[in-house]
């Protein structure tokens, strides 16, 4: 899950980025509105956590400009402005959810997950492919009720494929799901992690679920029941 946190207050920005990263998300941060716009123009995210009162370009302007540019990233407004009119303005400007400060981190995470599911048109937090099951809430994987131990990056890779199961996912899209903007792209890093993941799944004889489409990318096959 790729997230962007646009928040000028360092304590909030640092802590939620840290907490979300610990949950396996790839988190980029911006401390002002212009930085947020720059991130949105140069990369794609599953969910943006956006403060409204930002130095420079304010949060509502960031949101409006992003929508005008055709960006349909899920946006959760996180702000100290808690009046009804503020919430209406934020949602009308194109936000998908609104959370007032102070907030419980668990609620923030739950709302981000809900937006993530909405983006991928999943109604339940569980995705299955054959006997393989991913729990998006807990970030865990099971095969026939047996836990499959995965590293955070391996899980992110499997989640990226599972959310697009039976569809070819290009290497670039997988790389985007795994790394921050700051990371330098590497030509074979995706292949390396696919190899790691296949090895873990081979222990359950499920490595065939991930298939290579030469020159196109990878696909997670959900065999018919």
């Amino acid at each position: 899950m790729r997230l962007l946190v646009v928040e000028d207050y360092e304590a909030v920005r640092k802590s939620i980025a840290k907490g979300l990263r610990e949950l396996g998300a790839e988190v980029s941060v911006a401390s002002d509105g212009q930085g947020g716009l720059d991130h949105l123009r140069s990369s794609s995210f599953d969910v943006v956590i956006l403060d409204l009162m930002l130095p420079g370009v304010d949060g509502l302007t960031v949101l409006k400009q992003a929508r005008e540019a055709g960006d349909d990233t899920m946006v959760l407004i996180l702000t100290a402005r808690n009046r009804v009119q503020d919430r209406v303005d934020g949602l009308d400007a194109g936000a998908d959810d609104y959370l007032a400060k102070p907030f419980a981190f668990e609620e923030l995470v739950a709302r981000v997950r809900a937006l993530y599911r909405r983006k991928h048109q999943i109604r339940t937090p569980v995705v299955t492919a054959g006997r393989l099951m991913l729990d998006l809430n807990s970030g865990t994987v099971q095969f026939d009720d047996q836990p499959v131990p995965l590293s955070p990056r391996e899980y992110s890779l499997l989640e990226c494929l599972a959310l697009r199961k039976n569809r070819i996912v290009p290497r670039e899209a997988i790389w985007m799901a795994l790394y921050d903007l700051e990371d330098e792209p590497s030509s074979n890093v995706v292949d390396v992690y696919v190899g790691y993941l296949r090895k873990k799944l081979a222990a359950f004889e499920a490595d065939s679920l991930i298939q290579t489409r030469r020159g196109q990318g990878y696909i997670l096959v959900d065999p018919p029941a």
Binding site: A11, V12, S15, G19, P102, F103
Partner: peptide
Amino acid sequence: PLAGLHSLIDV
């Protein structure tokens, strides 16, 4: 600042 404290402690 309350939100900052809250999220710092929560996390």
